[in-house]
Design a binder for these strands. Structure first.
Lengths: 363, 363
DNA sequence: CTGAAAGCGCTTACAG
DNA sequence: CTGAAAGCGCTTACAG
């Protein structure tokens, strides 16, 4: 429904209300309501008359009024860390929303996409007509979670830092990242570039947050097994798009030219592979590439991408299920962590002979 | 916000209302409202007291109540032809929603995804708290558009049959499909399979609708240039997923084995290419494949997909812009048609020597 | 079987 | 500068 007085189809016509229908059918507004919601309570004749009047006037009950009265919206909000366009550009979110959508479809909820308001995810809350929020990638400091909780609105945190007691769903980012590094190290790679996701401005003041911090920790852990530290890898941080992965890879290959690129998202890895091909380099012959996410696309590509699988849709599904429970006031199962797994495919291989860009064909 | 009494964070705590805040701060409810919406109207001391009380109680204004009173929701609905999970599985929609999202972000609207209710797109309308709808792929018969219009809710039709007077956005499907066929015919293909999107049950009773009907017409037109008709091609209709494209291609190659597959979506085409590779067939050496949409993925793949480009994001953007105009009661610019263009890339080539599966390597 | 009344939580002219 | 009152459009006990 639309609350606005101005219609699109027939300009100038105010949307009819139950009062209009009641008048047209010569009954009370309650009778109109019953005709729609509890047909058994009125005689068939009256009901037919009301429904006919409604059809005639183009009446449908106002959704907002109904929600206010019902005290529920039957709609779930997804509080996004970026604007809608950015999110939709990222296949990761399409997959995540698929999972959330499965639950919405099954439970009869509709799905509201809520981007930050004036750069704040929390500020968007009072403008969303929903029964609760799936909060994506909130860069939590305790304050924000506390604030969420104080408002008494059901919510589930995804890809954040687990805040004690707050229902949340994560994957084992640390383990996934560690496995990816170890894989590359085992293949003999020592000059590794980490193609990471731009953590935004807050990183300077508060350090890494959420999944990114766990992945960084996993990388450090993996490196330490080979006696290396984060200082021994080249770290690039870019927005999470194929184009940026492409661009950054061009830049890094023009410089210290690693033998392996460990990307923290498949989208970035895909851009990296393209850039390497464009430079006339073979993947994995000259440079190995690993991704993170295991998007469906990762195995469509040639070479098929070696990447860290995370159950994205399942994460969305679980988050939505926890949220629906919370909305219904059922018990909470606070902190859930789903597993990751390294998928070794074709984009990673042994490091080229040590010491050398020698054999490498540069266009 | 959430209207529900049951919070997720602190169970049992009723959400505070402006009345609670007013009581705590010792002022009237109007004062509370002013503190949030028109701070200049009250003294700084009072305002601070109110805001402090609100913070203390975890109060945020109820979005639904606010919408009801304002007569607008600042949110746009997308009326989907399928459930949310299905839609999110289709990269076409991700791209379309990207376009819609750009406008929402810019104009400060939030985006509600509304799947059909009991198989009816129209039935979902009275449950959506939005100012208007982008209606995707409605299988219009005049009745439904008429009903939409009578309800006085702003709407814009996308990928439907243009209904006179109803604002709508389409692409030139017919031309796109015709170009794809002509391209294959020019390359010498005569045994062509059309891998089409399952039109759903209504097709039996009312024939093809919307973009699908236009694409079919374009194909027929293209074929006629070579003295062929629809009877001379093999038509397969499957749900629009990569997996179904894969499956159908396996089936069709086991049968009459065309030299070209014209898919009516990139997702299907991608599945087709995979299936052909799996069968040990070369693309385009043994079989040519063309797609429709020109998803970003189409040019990531090897071979890069020959496909019909349609400006998906632009379509979403334009639809949302028209809708926002309608919501604001501005003038309508009814029927907009965006262009398509054949992108000839690497998945299509000359038909193999006529007459023969002879040279083909079958695993 | 039907109607008058209260109330969901907010905002906003209107008085003071 | 602040408060009491009406109203957004609906639903639902409660009387009749």
């Amino acid at each position: 429904m639309a609350t606005g007085g101005r219609p699109g189809g027939e300009p100038g016509k105010r949307r009819p209300t139950s009062k209009d229908v009641a008048a047209a059918a010569g009954v009370s507004r309650s009778a109109v309501s019953f005709a729609f919601n509890d047909p058994a309570r009125i005689s068939e004749a009256t009901r037919e008359r009301i429904l006919a009047a409604a059809r005639e006037l183009g009446y449908v009950p106002n959704a907002v009024a109904r929600m206010l009265q019902a005290g529920q919206t039957k709609s779930l909000g997804v509080l996004l860390p970026q604007n809608v366009a950015k999110v939709m550009e990222n296949p990761y979110y399409a997959r995540f929303l698929l999972g959330v959508g499965q639950v919405c479809d099954r439970e009869g909820f509709t799905l509201l996409l809520t981007p930050p308001l004036r750069d704040s995810m929390l500020k968007a809350i009072p403008y969303a007509a929903v029964d609760g929020f799936v909060v994506c990638g909130l860069e939590t400091d305790r304050g924000e979670v506390e604030e969420l909780r104080r408002r008494g609105i059901p919510f589930v945190l995804v890809d954040s830092d687990a805040a004690e007691g707050a229902p949340s769903v994560d994957v084992d980012d640390r383990n996934g990242a560690r496995e990816a590094v170890e894989h590359l190290l085992q293949l003999g790679h020592r000059r590794i570039a980490v193609l990471s996701i731009d953590p935004g401005p807050t990183v300077a003041t508060v350090g890494y947050r959420g999944s990114l911090s766990r992945r960084m920790a996993g990388i450090a852990e993996g490196l330490s097994g080979a006696g290396m530290t984060m200082n021994d890898v080249e770290l690039l941080e870019v927005p999470c798009t194929r184009a940026e992965g492409y661009r950054a890879t061009g830049a890094v290959m023009a410089g210290r030219a690693p033998t392996a690129i460990l990307a923290l998202s498949d989208v970035l890895a895909i851009g990296a592979v393209d850039a390497l091909h464009e430079l006339g380099l073979r993947v994995p012959g000259d440079v190995s590439v690993t991704g993170f996410d295991d998007l469906p696309e990762a195995s469509w590509l040639r070479p098929r991408l070696t990447t860290v699988h995370q159950p994205i849709a399942a994460k969305g599904r679980l988050a939505a299920e926890l949220l629906v429970s919370a909305v219904r006031g059922e018990d909470q199962h606070p902190h859930q962590v789903l597993g990751t797994a390294l998928m070794v495919r074709d984009s990673s291989g042994r490091a080229p002979a040590p010491g050398g860009t020698g054999t490498r064909t540069r266009r």
